[in-house]
Design a protein around this nucleic acid. Structure first.
Length: 1093
RNA sequence: GGGCGAGUAGCUCAGCGGCUAGAGCAUCCGCCUUACACGCGGAGGGUCCAGGGUUCGAAUCCCUGCUUGCCCA
């Protein structure tokens, strides 16, 4: 079959893809893995699920290219390979995009729809983008197991999320707590950081005096928000403040409120300008306004909140959700002056000034500008607001510390002491067998990971959104009643009633209850439902209490409640009795990804998952970006190790054994073996920036669409270029240009990959033309070769003991191949993708094309041995390149796999296992014995001499077709390399005469000449202008002499250095002497030639 | 504020104790040489950010500074 002159990706990519799918080449079979009684080692990658928010960009292309390289390489190496694909629902991002879209297209808000209706809209959007993303990955050639594609909110993943939440809730690792959120008082909802914008506004610093307790003195605080003084719980001053010693520990009394609050010392308080000593302090813009005293309002300011947590300050909320002063939403019984109650924040501010003025405690104002947060949608001023949120207790040793213990010892920090993270294993205890399994590439990222866990804080997992996994907790709030029942008694009774209902529905094992609080003010019963059945039970129970369903009294729950109904309805506080409206942080479901995608917790519940966890968890490698280390990597490690721990696993199997047992509240947490890591290696890839070092983004318009590159250059070209860029550094730059024809962004860098693919294509085309038509063993059918390669004849490498002697260039090529394959293996094993790409590049382009193919042209047609070396080398190179350029290599393989030649001893090329596909063929094995130093040394002589002659040819503008004569002195031996020199340098005769004609040059210390450069007829004409030629010759030799002199000076300098001979390794010294001898000889030869001109 | 990178040819990057510091692109010269002009052959081009130090020897290791980027808080 004829191959086109140039590789046209678009004509071949689809066919290759179809072949792979037809062969089911990417399907992972867990039963093949040793853990399940099979014979293979597993190799697994879970894709970092792309957000369904938008199409993939070049960073995704890079990351997925690298994953595909790893997957394909391991598949060829015989690993049972799973690359799990899927997408992420990306809660806030997706909901925001859809909200914007709906606003633009329908002029409607989220709240104009029911929750269900709006979720359906997001779902439709998700379907749309999931299809786009999947299409992109397939166009890139990603060898995922597409039949297993998951989505973080599909039924399988949702089941895992439910189970995980339940277990954590049951085990006391999930709790409810208060946290500052961005509150939009107009919409009365929390808003995320990216739904706010900052704006500089004119404001004022207000100066308020607070009287010291038991003293007539006052201190003055400066603030831009005087109204929040109602929620003050401390005053801070800098410990270096000269007054601090006397004042810290004393108390002040808040005017009107009457609350006594402490004065604390904290660096956060800025020293007044007059006390500042360093430039930094003086230049702090706040120093100008500072009095040295800062009011602390932890419930209404993010900085104060941090300090409040640090110093254990009380949190007093003085605002209601609609942004008015309130004493109804506070804690610790805060008392507000009645005149403030119900006032808006702006009104309250004026009132503060008035009241303080009346009391003589107002010192004045100074104008300032400061930045303020506003809500995108309502434009209202965003208030930091304390509200109820759910947390995962990742500070528990079973979480953060276990995550750090997962690090391989050599990547742990040696001087590790504090923190919640790693602690040395106590004496006498063996380290966990599952510890020390995790390593980072490049290793420096282990520090990021470790540091994160050392300083980790509990993870807030609730989000005030609609799109996501809704928190599976129902709350019964208790209210005191005149009958005088104590809180504890009432709570006890409620739990008993709930328990009866659960039993009636047969779901008591699927529910965990926890009582929160100790009084009717803040007490409630939280009930977590593990399954949909349990959920229905709770719905019914609430319906019975609230009478919200038709014929509620006929529900099984009603009979289970029975005569307690009246009592129950009197004690359960209706308005807040419901399922929690919030959804889980997206990372909660992502954190379960290596578990949920493989069927955890119950592989039998969804088809095809059996044996997956055993086979593929832990996975082998996770490829991701560095900011993901904290967001995702850490959480996957914590979750995998917790949910696959002995403790959790055993508890689950006990439940299966006796499903009726109730999940008790706060299981006793006993010491247990943590589970395995979710992945052994974490590879962190570089960030792609544009040519100016800026992030690629839509707003800058500097983004490059992978599909555009695939269209213009081909998928392989994009992949190769990206792989070649993937170095260990943090950022890589890709100069971006706008294509004048299409108007699309592209980069000239992709030409590299396109040219390389074309080079491979043409090298193969040439090889096929040489050997495709003349099989060595015509009697062996084409298909048979791939079945039983051992039947074909085998060529020895020409080394001692070999049957057939190979020529120098063949031995050289095999040596280069052996080195190249070894280097590629080593590079990929260390995630050195760029080195792998560049190594392959040199091997194919320089070694194979420039030297080998050119060198064998005169001989290959008549040498079956050479044809074998040619075919086997090309086949090996194509296999080596398959992971990075799957399409072109697969296309070519479909031709070269039919070639019949002898095999080459030392090269093992295992045939394909599925439909003759390269992607299931064996990774090339080239025996190290094929490395041949002698051949490399001799060939290097060829290359050096050829380079000198080519230089002369170029300077003299000798036509490529013209054969010239080389004159060498008899002392210089070119035995065995003379034919190659003739081929490469365009020489027809190598004479050993001592002619003085022609162009002289120095090689290996001898004076050589080339003559007959020009056609005799032209020579006569040129003789007239001989002076010019002579001048050029002189210039050339002069430069050669200068180069040699420079080299000689360097080498002599080194040898003359007294310490060198003494301290440097002897071999190195000898090498330097040899170099010097050679350089001097070359210089002398060149000088002699110059003198004769 | 803490942590991690980068600064080498016009551009994008390798090299990270010892070759005359390399590659691709770009530039210049010559070639449609029968696989490839997405090509072939050749050439020019670098105070390896600056300043100290360690070493027989530093682009490479250490320190200081400058420029620049990212992550976490």
């Amino acid at each position: 079959m004829e191959l086109a002159k140039a590789y046209k990706p678009i004509e071949h990519e689809q066919a290759a893809w179809d072949l792979w799918l037809k062969a089911k080449a990417f399907a992972a079979d867990p039963s093949q893995v040793k853990a399940n009684g099979g014979t293979k080692d597993p190799y697994a990658i879970v894709i970092p699920p792309p957000n369904v928010t938008a199409a993939l960009h070049l960073g995704h292309a890079l990351n997925n290219t690298l994953q595909d390289i790893l997957a394909r390489m391991h598949r060829m190496k015989g690993y049972e390979t799973l690359w799990m694909p899927g997408t992420d629902h990306a809660g806030i991002a997706t909901q925001a995009v859809v909200e914007k879209r709906v606003m633009k297209e329908e002029k409607k808000r989220k709240t104009d729809f029911t929750r269900e209706a709006f979720i359906a809209k997001i779902q439709a959007f998700k379907d749309e983008y999931e299809a786009v993303i999947t299409g992109q990955l397939k166009a890139m050639g990603c060898s995922c197991d597409w039949d297993r594609q998951r989505f973080t909110m599909d039924d399988q993943c949702a089941t895992a999320v439910r189970e995980a939440f339940f277990i954590l809730f049951r085990d006391g690792l999930i709790y409810r707590g208060k946290r500052l959120v961005n509150w939009d008082p107009a919409l009365q909802t929390a808003v995320a950081d990216d739904e706010c914008y900052d704006e500089e506004v004119d404001g004022q610093f207000y100066f308020l005096k607070y009287p010291l307790v038991d003293s007539d003195e006052t201190i003055t605080v400066a603030t831009t928000r005087p109204e929040t003084y109602l929620g003050d719980t401390a005053v801070a001053m800098n410990p270096r403040d000269s007054r601090a010693k006397a004042l810290v520990g004393k108390k002040v009394r808040l005017p009107l409120v009457g609350r006594e609050i402490p004065i604390i010392a904290d660096d956060y308080a800025v020293l007044p300008e007059s006390m500042a000593t360093t430039d930094e302090e003086k230049n702090d813009p706040k120093a100008k306004f500072s009095t040295g005293f800062v009011k602390m309002t932890p419930a209404h300011d993010t900085n104060d909140y941090e300090i409040g947590v640090r110093h254990g300050l009380a949190m007093v909320n003085m605002m209601s959700p609609d942004g008015r002063v309130s004493d109804k939403h506070g804690w610790d019984g805060a008392k507000m002056p009645p005149e403030f109650l119900g006032k808006k924040m702006e009104e309250a501010r004026k009132l503060v000034v008035e009241e303080f003025t009346k009391l003589g405690l107002f010192e004045g104002v100074k104008p300032t500008r400061h930045s303020k947060k506003f809500s995108d949608r309502s434009k209202a001023v965003v208030e930091p607001y304390l509200s109820d949120q759910w947390y995962v207790r990742v500070t528990d040793p079973k979480m953060a510390r276990t995550a750090n213990a997962a690090l391989v010892p050599e990547q742990r920090t040696s001087n590790h002491t504090g923190g919640t993270g790693f602690q040395p294993v106590p004496n006498g205890l063996k380290a966990r067998s599952t510890d020390g399994e995790l390593s980072f590439f490049p290793p420096r990222y282990a520090k990021t990971y470790e540091h994160w866990h050392d300083n980790i804080r509990d993870w807030c997992i609730s989000r005030q959104l609609w799109w996501g996994h809704r928190i599976p907790v129902w709350s019964l709030s208790l209210d005191s009643q005149p009958d005088g029942t104590s809180f504890a008694t009432a709570a006890q009774r409620v739990q008993e009633i709930v328990q009866r209902v659960l039993t009636a529905y047969g779901v008591s094992g699927d529910v965990a209850m926890r009582l929160c609080g100790e009084s009717f003010d803040d007490g409630r019963l939280d009930i977590c439902a593990r399954t949909v059945a349990a959920e229905r039970c709770l719905d019914d129970l609430l319906a019975v209490i609230l009478e919200t369903k038709d014929k509620w009294y006929e529900l099984p729950a009603a009979s289970a409640v029975g005569s307690d109904w009246t009592w129950l309805t009197e004690h359960v506080y209706p308005p807040e009795t419901d399922r929690d409206p919030d959804v889980l942080d997206t990372w909660f479901s992502s954190a379960l990804w290596p578990l949920s995608t493989m069927g955890w917790p119950n592989p039998r519940a969804f088809p095809g998952n059996e044996g997956m966890l055993e086979a593929f968890n832990p996975t082998s490698t996770l490829c991701t970006a560095r900011e993901i280390i904290t967001l995702w990597v850490s959480r996957m490690v914590m979750f995998n190790r917790y949910f696959r721990s002995d403790e959790v696993t055993k508890k689950r199997s006990d439940e299966v054994a006796s499903p009726s047992s109730t999940s008790s509240l706060r299981h006793s947490v006993t010491s247990s073996l943590p589970g395995p890591v979710p992945f052994k290696h974490v590879y962190i890839h570089a960030v792609i920036q544009d040519g100016e070092g800026r992030k690629m983004s839509k707003s800058l318009g500097n983004g490059v669409d992978p599909l555009d590159i695939i269209e213009s250059h081909g998928s392989d070209a994009m992949r190769f270029t990206l792989c070649q860029m993937a170095t260990d550094t943090q950022d890589v730059r890709l100069p971006v240009q706008k294509d004048s024809k299409t108007g699309k962004n592209t980069s000239p860098k992709f030409d590299l990959g396109r040219n390389f693919a074309n080079k491979l294509w043409n090298a193969s085309r040439f090889a096929l033309s040489m050997i495709g038509g003349s099989p060595l063993r015509g009697e062996v059918a084409a298909e048979q070769r791939s079945e039983s390669p051992a039947t074909s004849a085998s060529l020895a490498s020409g080394r001692p003991g070999g049957a057939t002697h190979l020529s120098l260039i063949d031995r050289w090529m095999l040596s280069r191949l052996a080195t190249g394959v070894h280097a590629a293996d080593a590079s990929l094993a260390q995630y050195q993708f760029s080195e792998y790409a560049m190594g392959c590049y040199t091997l194919l382009w320089n070694d194979f094309c420039d030297w080998y193919l050119e060198g064998i042209k005169p001989t290959v047609a008549n040498s079956p041995q050479q044809q074998a070396v040619l075919a086997q080398s090309l086949d090996a190179i194509i296999r080596l390149l398959h992971p990075v350029m799957p399409f072109v290599t697969e296309t070519l393989f479909q031709h070269i796999r039919h070639i019949q030649t002898a095999t080459v001893a030392g090269i093992t090329l295992t045939p394909a296992t599925k439909l003759g596909t390269l992607c299931t063929a064996g990774w090339p094995k080239v025996d190290a014995s094929l490395r041949d130093e002698n051949a490399e040394r001799e060939f290097a002589r060829v290359q050096a001499l050829v380079a000198l002659i080519r230089d002369i040819r170029a300077k003299h503008q000798v036509k490529p077709a013209r054969k010239i004569t080389l004159h060498v002195p008899a002392s210089l031996k070119l035995t065995g390399i003379d034919d190659l020199i003739k081929t490469f340098a365009g020489i027809d005769i190598i004479a050993t005469d001592a002619t003085q004609t022609g162009v002289p040059f120095a090689f290996e210390g001898a004076e050589l000449r080339v003559s007959n450069l020009i056609d005799p007829a032209e020579a006569a004409a040129a003789a007239a202008t001989g002076g010019d030629a002579n001048d050029a010759e002189k210039a050339r030799l002069t430069k050669q002499i200068a180069d040699m002199d420079k080299s000689i000076a360097t080498l002599e300098g080194r040898l003359n250095n007294p310490g060198y001979a003494d301290r440097a390794p002897p071999a190195m010294v000898q090498q330097t002497r040899d170099q010097l001898t050679k350089a001097k000889a070359d210089r002398d030869a060149a000088a002699a030639a110059l003198a004769k001109l």
